[in-house]
Amino acid sequence: MRGRLALGWLTAALVVGLAPAGSLAAGPAAAAASGPGATASRAEAGPRLSVPAAALRRAVSCSGKARRGRTPVLLVHGTGTTGKETWRLGWQQSLRAEGRAVCVVDLPRFGTGDVQDNAQYVVHALRHLQGKAGDRDVSVVALSKGMTETLLALRVWPDVARQVDDVVGLAGVMDRGSRAIAAQCAADPCVPALHQVATGSAFLRAVTRHPLPRGISYTAVSTPLDRTVTPQPGANRQRGVRPVSIDAVCPGRAARFGVGHAQVLGDAVARALVRDALARRGPASPARVPRSTCGREHFPGFDEAGFTRLAAVVAARRHATTTREPRVRSWLRR
C-alpha cells in the first residue's frame, strides 16, 4: 500500500502538479533552442537541428556495446523528470541484464518545454546510438509524452526511422492527445509541452499530416485506469500501432494493483510486454506474456523505494507555465 501511494503522488506531480514557478510569455517558445544546428554522420533527410550541438551531446548517456548482443535500446522519459531519474529505477539494469546496450536521453527542463525542441534531442540520441550500433537496428522505449517526441522524430527525420526496429510506448501520448490534459490547460496555465499534447492542439493537427514510417513495429502499452492520457482505451488507438492494455493480459489487473498512468513504469505486465516486443518480430502480443506475471505487481528489480523518493522530488518541482502553446514550426507545417 505504501508503494502504491507513492506512485499516486508521482502521477499527480507528472501532470496536475506541474505547478508554475513563473509565467512564460505567450507565443513562440524561448530562443534556447536556437544556435548552430547539430549534424549527423550521414546526410540528413529531415530539417536541420536548431538545438545547439553541445546541448544535444550532453543529453545522451550510454552503456554496453551496441554492436553486440540483442537489439540496443534508447529510453525516452516523460514530463516532470529526467531520463536518469526515470530509467535507473530498474529499466536500465533489466535491459542490460537481457544483453542489450542502452542509451538514455535527458530532455531539457524536465521535458516540459516545446516538444519540437525535445524531439531534436531524440533525433540526436537515435543517431548516436545508431552510429554505435553500426548496421544494426535499434529500438525505443518511451514513457508518457516521450512517445510523442519519439513519433515526431521518426516522422520528420526519415534517416533515423530507417534503422529502428521497435517503438514501445508506456502510457504514451499518441496522435489523439489527451482530453484530460486539454481540460486542465483550458482551466489553468500549463507548461508548453502539455498544451501541445492536449487534444485538439495545433501541434497535433500538424503532426497527423505526417504519416508514421512503415517497417517499424509500434506497440502502445496502456492501462484502463490512466487518468492522464484520456479517454481510455481510445487515446491509445492509432492506425499502424498495436494498442495493448495490461488488462488484456490479466483481466482486472489495473483495478487489482491500482495501475494508473505513472504506475505503468513499474508494472510487471507492462515490462513483460516490452520484453516481448523487443525479443520477437512485430509488436507485443498479450498471448505470449506468461500467466505467472499476473500475480506480480512490479517487475523484478524495480526500485520501489527509489520511486517513493523520486515522487517527493518531482512533487516539489515548479515549472514555468503559459496560457498558449508554442507556435508550430515551419518544418512541421509542411
Rank of each mutant, 00 (worst) to 15 (best):
A255F: 05
T148Q: 08
P47M: 08
T321L: 10
L310Q: 00
V314G: 01
R309A: 12
V160Y: 03
P108Q: 06
L56E: 01
V264M: 15
R288Y: 06
G64T: 08
R281W: 04
P28Y: 14
S178K: 00
A193W: 06
R333E: 03
M147D: 05
A262P: 12
R271T: 03
G22V: 04
Q196D: 13
D276Y: 03
R271W: 14
G172P: 09
L310I: 03
R109M: 13
P326D: 11
G46V: 11
R288P: 08
T39E: 15
W331V: 10
Q93F: 05
D166L: 01
A187L: 15
A125T: 09
S34T: 14
V269L: 08
Q93T: 13
P243G: 02
D267I: 08
D276H: 05
E325H: 11
A180T: 15
L170K: 00
T223Q: 05
G282Q: 12
D137A: 13
C294E: 05
A315P: 02
P251L: 05
R127F: 02
G134I: 11
R179I: 01
G131S: 14
I246E: 07
G282N: 13
K65P: 03
G266K: 06
R68D: 14
G234N: 10
S144M: 04
H195I: 12
R58N: 09
V164N: 12
C62W: 13
S63K: 13
S222E: 09
G37F: 12
R205I: 02
C62S: 15
G266D: 03
H124N: 10
G258C: 02
G177I: 07
P300N: 12
A142G: 01
S222H: 11
L74R: 15
D267R: 04
E85N: 08
G83N: 06
R275P: 01
I181Y: 04
T223V: 04
Q130S: 09
R327L: 10
S330E: 09
R162C: 00
A311D: 10
S330Y: 02
F307I: 08
R280V: 09
V289R: 04
R271V: 09
R67W: 11
P224N: 08
R88D: 06
T148D: 11
L204C: 04
G282L: 06
A182M: 00
P108L: 03
V269E: 07
G252M: 03
W87P: 00
L265S: 00
L49V: 12
R329A: 13
W9R: 15
G113K: 00
H261L: 01
L5W: 08
V60Y: 07
V314C: 01
R88S: 15
L56K: 02
G200Q: 04
S94E: 14
A277T: 02
